[in-house]
Structures are given as structure tokens and as C-alpha cells.
Design a protein around this nucleic acid. Structure first.
Length: 276
DNA sequence: ACCCTCACCTGCACGC
DNA sequence: TGCGTGCAGGTGAGGG
């Protein structure tokens, strides 16, 4: 389910729901969920600790524990956390479970099995391969016009592919990449290094804006306390995208039909008239 | 570097 | 009803 805004909402929800709860026992039920942390080690590094704080880096969720360890999680396409009462059965595709001392359980459920976890020392977590190459956070000062322009100039790929590269811009996925390019009026087919300084500045503004808007919409939803982050995409009430998933529908600006194309095997949506 | 395809999985919507 | 096809919000690997 995740691009940056959804992960941000999940992070906030988890902080409200499980911060300070103590994990009596953890269960890595599917080993390949955490290829770098075998089940016995997984439990040894987690069990008995309390969750100090949950934060986010790019699309990764980070659970800081009070024993100096951090659980790094990526939801990929279909991963989700659920907070289950003591008596509830595990849903299908439950790949990890965290049993709290109060009897409740946080479980990680992932139909498509793409999600990933890893336990690392908190002090070293930003050196982990999952995090050490990520681009600056879009909401930080580091994500400046100069940064983006320089990154763009370093790449000959299409702008769409550039925006999906988490080492160049982090947090965008297939939906918000299309949305940001539409708002900035730039064609997804343009080469990254052909974007002018002026348009790069506009693109930066729109990337931040599209993400900020989505976080805000997500934050207005009544949180589902079992299925954490449920309904966050499309602000819970059907799609609200301007161009994404709107092939052949009228452009919100000029009414000409939205085009769908394939780039690197993935759908891109844009308006031929408004995006040059 | 780049580009492309495939792989990892399941489920759903569609057309026949 | 069933069956095949293509698609899905993410990424990493491997080959050219």
C-alpha cells in the first residue's frame, strides 16, 4: 500500500497505538521476510524490549526499541500492520507477529510476500544498505532546488524513471510521480538532465506539495485501529488522483484525454497538452 | 552509467 | 462457470 504519505500515516498510527508497549515474544513466521535476520536472532534481538518510537525514512518504517535495536520494515506492495486483540486468529499471510505483554499482538500481513524486515543496532541503522543511499527526505531543507537540479543533471533516464529512483528522490511511487509531473507541467518522457533550472524548481515544489497534500488527507481519516493505515490511499473515498488511473478521462485542466504509457514496465499517466 | 526484462507473490477484473 | 491474460501502490538482480 505504500508511498511516502501512506507510510507516514502508518508511522503516526503506530506511534499512537503501540508506542511504549513491551514485546514479550516475537515470531518470524516466514523466514524470507527477514533474509538478513534469521528467526532465532530476530527474536533474540527483539524479545523483552519495548517500542520507544516509530519513525520513517523514505518508505521504510523504523521501530526503535529500548534495547538499542531498530526494526527496519518495508511494506512494499501489500504489506500491512494489524493490531489484534488477544483472542483474534491470525489472518492469512501473517508473516510476523509481536506479542505484547498486555496480550494484544501486532502482526505483519502481506499477501504478495514482497515486504521486508531487518533488525539492526539503532546506532548503525543509517549505515544499513536499506537506508544509506536514500535521497534526502522531501520535507527536509536538504531537498533543495540545488539538490534536485544537480540530481536531475546526473541522469539521462526519463523523468518518470528518475522520480521512482529512491536514491534520487525518495518517497515517490508510481502514483505520486505521475501526479507531481502533472502539477509541474513536465512530460514524463523528458530526459531528467534536460529539465531546466526553473522547471526543476517548480517540480520540487510540486513533489513536496503532492506529498504534503496526501499526508494531510490521510491525517483527516478516522484511523482503523485494527488494520493500520487502511483507506489512506485515495483519501479513503475513491480515487482522487488528477491523472493517475485516469486513462482516456478528461484532463482536469484542458479536458484532453489522459494518456497512459509504459515506462520501465510500469504505467505512467499524463496530459499531452499540459505536460511538455 | 544506462536500458530492458524478469523475479518475487496473490488476487482481481476482464474478455471469450 | 471456467480459463487465460494482464494488471496492481516496490524494488533488486542480471544481461546487453
Amino acid at each position: 500500500m505504500p508511498e511516502l504519505p501512506e507510510v507516514e500515516i502508518v508511522t503516526r498510527s503506530l506511534n499512537k497505538l503501540v508506542r511504549n508497549r513491551r514485546i514479550r515474544a516475537s515470531e518470524l513466521r516466514r523466514e524470507r521476510l527477514a533474509p538478513d535476520t534469521p528467526p532465532a536472532e530476530f527474536s533474540r534481538r527483539i524479545d523483552g524490549s519495548a517500542i520507544n518510537f516509530v519513525h520513517r525514512r523514505g518508505k521504510h518504517l523504523l521501530f526503535d526499541l529500548d534495547n538499542g535495536q531498530t526494526l527496519i520494515t518495508h511494506l512494499r506492495m501489500s504489506g500491512r500492520f494489524m493490531l489484534l486483540p488477544e483472542e483474534a486468529e491470525y489472518p492469512k499471510f501473517t508473516h510476523a507477529a509481536f506479542h505484547f505483554t498486555d496480550g494484544s499482538r501486532l502482526i505483519f500481513q502481506d499477501q504478495r510476500h514482497f515486504g521486508l524486515m531487518k533488525v539492526t543496532a539503532t546506532a548503525e541503522m543509517y549505515e544499513a544498505k536499506e537506508l544509506n543511499k536514500l535521497a534526502p527526505e522531501p520535507f527536509s531543507d536538504e531537498f533543495s532546488d540545488d539538490y534536485l537540479l544537480r540530481a536531475l543533471k546526473s541522469s539521462k533516464r526519463s523523468l518518470k524513471e528518475f522520480l521512482l529512483d529512491q536514491t534520487k528522490v525518495c518517497g515517490l511511487g508510481n502514483i505520486y510521480a505521475s501526479e507531481a509531473m502533472f502539477l509541474a507541467g513536465i512530460s514524463p518522457r523528458k530526459t531528467a538532465n534536460s529539465v531546466s533550472r526553473k522547471r526543476a524548481a517548480e517540480l520540487r515544489v510540486q513533489i513536496v506539495e503532492v506529498l504534503r497534500e496526501a499526508v494531510e488527507l490521510g491525517a483527516t481519516l478516522v484511523p482503523d485501529e485494527v488494520n493500520i493505515g487502511e483507506g489512506v490511499y485515495g483519501n479513503g473515498s475513491g480515487t482522487s488522483w488528477r491523472v493517475y488511473d485516469r486513462e482516456s478521462q478528461p484532463c482536469p485542466n484542458c479536458e484532453s484525454p489522459i494518456i497512459r504509457l509504459k515506462q520501465a514496465g510500469r504505467s505512467t499517466y499524463f496530459c499531452r497538452k499540459c505536460q511538455k
